[in-house]
Design a protein around this nucleic acid. Sequence first.
DNA 1: ACTTTATATTCCGTTATGGGAATATGTCAA
DNA 2: TTGACATATTCCCATAACGGAATATAAAGT
Lengths: 125, 125
Amino acid sequence: MARAATTTDVFNAIAEPRRREIIGMLSDGREHAVGDVVLHLRMPQPAVSKHLGVLRKVGVVTVSRRGQMRLYRLNAKELKPVHDWVKVYERFWTHQLDRIKIRAEQKMAERITRENQIGRDKEEK
Amino acid sequence: MARAATTTDVFNAIAEPRRREIIGMLSDGREHAVGDVVLHLRMPQPAVSKHLGVLRKVGVVTVSRRGQMRLYRLNAKELKPVHDWVKVYERFWTHQLDRIKIRAEQKMAERITRENQIGRDKEEK
DNA sequence: ACTTTATATTCCGTTATGGGAATATGTCAA
DNA sequence: TTGACATATTCCCATAACGGAATATAAAGT
């Protein structure tokens, strides 16, 4: 196997900086035509279409037609898995207090590890 | 050009499910030997070493040596960019109130778009 | 019917990816 | 030193990624 397809999950989809830019442009919650994105982000049209295609397959955007244009809209709830996943690590950089707690836990854990190690050493003797 | 290297930024690094698993295992803030990861996540050792290598290059983990083993520790603050980025979209799925507000904004935006469209149609006549 | 206009799709080339297997490096222990 | 152990690195493979250019589709306008 090679790499997992980008159309597989959201994490892969947002790995592309340009796709994140597109998402950012859609973050106003409004519909945007492909041409808008091309203009604002100054990307070649085929690139935009492709990236939007990826985002659509993952569900991060939805499409609707209006005349000859296609209007893309952000479906942000599909980003929730990313948020949920990374939220777990928030405590590592917020709140001095948490940081102290984490430190304490680490020290404790290390001590136990050390003691276990010593215990094992003795047994092996 | 192909894709940006995974070792380039965090978003690419966490795109790999297995790497997310490894990060998850390190989320206790303690040091873990490569062998621990191999055992707990049941991945072949070279795979683990490679993934840890990627995470280290991005700065998500740090290494230290203890005897013949290398102890990896999570450096979670490197995940903050991801958190910051995705936090922007939190409002889309939390709080009924926000959702209503967003809806209202959308309707309003659509009306304006529609009116502009009509305006343009008239001018072009 | 023909021509713009808007968007999608296809083809191609280069490059990186992740897995597996084998091998290298480095450390401890007898 | 020799050998067991822990981890890293290398090589090869199949795959898919992006970008660019060209082309296809499709809707509107004249």
